[in-house]
Design a protein around this nucleic acid. Structure first.
Lengths: 276, 276
DNA sequence: AAGTGGTCTAGACCACTAT
DNA sequence: TAGTGGTCTAGACCACTTT
């Protein structure tokens, strides 16, 4: 591994420390590692280290919830200073891929924690504290991906996808109707039983049972009116205004692995967003 | 100023460098400076420096768009290392209070820049690239703050507030109806003429003309139906579903200085949100 | 007491911009 | 050429957690 990093180091004119007087050698288009440069842009060492750590996260060398090696140990492994490892981990922590705990170590982020329950659920009650809703699976079936769905999931039209429809309720009041489309190749074997058995956030199940960790998502929000079918499922009058939240979720490598269309009843809840 | 920082330093058991062997002295509840501890919690030096820089931003010592002193100069002024100043500025940059430009320096953030035009405007067209909308001021008047508005703006019920109603259009199509309430004490002299004369983002005008820089905002989003009056202003049928976006904007010191209720037509646009 | 992340410093060199 | 922010290192000590 040391040699590997040395290689990386020489890929940039970045050898500033006196102990490693490797110089010049602007980014050569040599072997095609994951970190190799697509453009001849400058890439600092800590970014390369970050990429290496991310690879270990993706490959499952360190699993969600587990402790990763200490900064000193990683520095030794990669043959860089602790400060450089620290900066790499700083960015990973900012992206919620890992969680730092002073005195204990750095842990792989997981969706099985109270802390991250509301990271992807932005609907909050107008009054009172947020609660996690009850789930009711309405339907689970396999189908062939329509063109639109295939495009969003970056798979071929007609490929197998798993369709899930569920209703989420707060204190027994139906509030969210979700339709999900998941690539069949990744979520093979996902059934209504498994979804119903599982108590907790769906992304936790995906992470544990299918090895797929959602790391970010992109949402498009619109206002729509409930049609007859939706109105019945949410137990409201047809024509009731609803928030339409279309989400694409991504795992490592910016790979889309979930398409979701949520309809939110906002009579007593709202979608919360902080602009910074 | 040097003495001031020395004081700060001794407020924590934080004097780790060998050149400044000030020791112990756990946070005493002494004099009430801006940085003084409300709770006896540990506050690192760079946070204190960050607070001092923020004060200079708030006081207008460095105005929006201007260059602030270099890291080395600030380090000298505050009698700390460049690395400590750097970490303070890193956080200010992450919060969009300043902008770093390699080789040029660090600048005070401003709302008069293409970069930040869409920081507080999340409505994007379903197809094509985002554009900044045309403004049409419908109404500007002074009134006494209703209880609800006063509560949100942290002023007294009945205090003077300025009410603004405007319509924003994309390519001539009315899409956003905004109602704004601003504290009269801060925005004294704001008229329809000034709003109409001014080309560019409203927050830029607030920043330049009223010395009030919005630094963050909190939004609550719901789905509603257009009533008769709204429908007429947006030139749609009554009952059309609209996004209701209720925003409270804050300036330094978490002081609320704007209440805004936007109604967004989402037939050909959507509210974009990235979850990380 | 030992190990972890968190802070702070000092010094070197690199990348970028302006003069 | 000089000045700025950006990266990298090495070493010290602090705060927190566990043994």
């Amino acid at each position: 591994m040391g040699v590997f990093v040395m290689k990386l180091r020489t890929m940039n004119s970045n050898a500033s420390n006196t102990q490693n007087p490797l110089s010049g050698a602007a980014s050569g288009g040599s072997s095609g590692t994951a970190v190799s440069v697509a453009s001849p842009t400058f890439s600092p060492l800590y970014q390369q280290i970050k990429a290496l750590i991310t690879q270990s996260l993706q490959s499952g060398e360190w699993k969600p919830g587990e402790l990763i090696p200490s900064e000193i140990e990683l520095a030794s492994r990669f043959k860089v200073s602790q400060g450089t490892v620290r900066k790499a981990i700083d960015e990973l922590a900012a992206e919620n891929l890992v969680v730092r705990r002073q005195g204990k170590g750095t842990f792989v982020a997981t969706h099985h924690e109270a802390r991250s329950q509301f990271r992807f659920l932005r609907l909050a009650p107008d009054e009172g504290v947020p609660h996690y809703p009850e789930n009711q699976i309405v339907e689970v079936k396999r189908l062939r991906a329509p063109a639109e769905v295939a495009r969003m999931l970056d798979i071929k039209s007609g490929d197998s996808v798993i369709f899930i429809r569920r209703v989420q309720s707060f204190s027994g009041v139906p509030t969210i109707l979700d339709d999900l489309w998941l690539p069949g190749a990744i979520f093979k074997g996902l059934t209504a039983e498994r979804l119903n058995e599982y108590k907790g956030p769906m992304y936790g199940l995906f992470e544990t049972e299918f090895g797929t960790h959602m790391i970010r998502a992109s949402e498009q929000i619109r206002a729509v009116c409930a049609d007859e079918q939706v109105a019945q499922l949410l137990q409201v009058a047809a024509g009731t205004p609803l928030l339409s939240v279309e989400r694409v979720s991504f795992t490592f490598g910016d790979k889309p692995v979930e398409l979701r269309r949520g309809l939110y009843l906002t009579s007593h809840h709202h979608y919360r967003n902080e602009l910074n």
